[in-house]
Simulated assay, not measured.
Amino acid sequence: MTMTYEYRGRIARKYVAQGREEGWQEGREEGLAEVARVVLTVLDARGVTLSEAQRSRIEGCRDLGQLEDWARRAATITTADELFD
């Protein structure tokens, strides 16, 4: 029989909540980085050349909606400038 331990102390709950928040934040950052890699992969597969500034803009984006929009556009554009219009 496996017992689960519930954190009951105020301090213990605080640190468990802090750990959850940090884990959630790390997961979000990893997810955003993965979407940026997908955008770059699609652009590369389609032969769309990016400047270093454009590549950095995609890699540094932390707005999921923007990354999703770029992913959709990456499927149809022919130049990097079209991605950011």
Results as ranks from 00 to 15, higher is better:
residue 1 M to D: 10
residue 2 T to L: 07
residue 2 T to P: 08
residue 4 T to G: 09
residue 4 T to M: 13
residue 6 E to R: 13
residue 6 E to A: 12
residue 7 Y to H: 14
residue 7 Y to L: 13
residue 7 Y to N: 09
residue 7 Y to V: 08
residue 8 R to C: 05
residue 8 R to F: 02
residue 10 R to E: 08
residue 10 R to D: 06
residue 11 I to M: 11
residue 12 A to N: 11
residue 13 R to V: 04
residue 15 Y to N: 05
residue 15 Y to A: 00
residue 18 Q to P: 01
residue 18 Q to K: 14
residue 19 G to S: 14
residue 19 G to V: 07
residue 21 E to R: 11
residue 23 G to E: 05
residue 23 G to I: 04
residue 23 G to S: 06
residue 24 W to Y: 10
residue 25 Q to P: 01
residue 26 E to R: 15
residue 27 G to I: 07
residue 27 G to L: 07
residue 29 E to M: 09
residue 29 E to S: 12
residue 29 E to L: 15
residue 30 E to R: 14
residue 30 E to T: 15
residue 31 G to Q: 03
residue 33 A to W: 01
residue 33 A to F: 04
residue 34 E to V: 03
residue 35 V to F: 01
residue 35 V to W: 01
residue 36 A to W: 01
residue 39 V to E: 00
residue 39 V to P: 02
residue 40 L to Y: 08
residue 40 L to W: 01
residue 41 T to L: 12
residue 42 V to N: 01
residue 42 V to Q: 03
residue 44 D to F: 13
residue 44 D to G: 10
residue 44 D to I: 01
residue 44 D to N: 14
residue 45 A to M: 09
residue 46 R to G: 03
residue 47 G to P: 07
residue 49 T to A: 13
residue 49 T to G: 05
residue 49 T to L: 10
residue 50 L to A: 05
residue 50 L to H: 01
residue 51 S to F: 04
residue 51 S to T: 15
residue 51 S to C: 07
residue 54 Q to V: 05
residue 55 R to M: 09
residue 57 R to K: 15
residue 59 E to I: 11
residue 59 E to F: 13
residue 59 E to K: 14
residue 59 E to P: 04
residue 59 E to V: 13
residue 59 E to T: 11
residue 61 C to Q: 11
residue 61 C to P: 04
residue 63 D to W: 07
residue 63 D to E: 15
residue 64 L to I: 12
residue 64 L to V: 09
residue 64 L to R: 11
residue 65 G to K: 09
residue 65 G to V: 06
residue 66 Q to P: 00
residue 68 E to T: 09
residue 68 E to P: 00
residue 68 E to Y: 08
residue 68 E to I: 07
residue 68 E to C: 01
residue 69 D to W: 08
residue 69 D to N: 11
residue 69 D to Q: 12
residue 70 W to H: 02
residue 71 A to Y: 06
residue 72 R to Y: 12
residue 72 R to L: 15
residue 73 R to I: 00
residue 73 R to G: 05
residue 73 R to A: 07
residue 73 R to H: 14
residue 73 R to Q: 11
residue 74 A to L: 03
residue 74 A to G: 03
residue 74 A to V: 03
residue 75 A to N: 11
residue 75 A to W: 05
residue 76 T to M: 08
residue 77 I to A: 05
residue 77 I to K: 05
residue 77 I to H: 04
residue 78 T to H: 12
residue 79 T to F: 07
residue 79 T to W: 02
residue 80 A to E: 03
residue 80 A to I: 07
residue 80 A to K: 03
residue 81 D to M: 07
residue 82 E to W: 06
residue 82 E to Y: 05
residue 82 E to S: 10
residue 83 L to H: 00
residue 83 L to K: 02
residue 83 L to N: 02
residue 84 F to N: 08
residue 84 F to V: 08
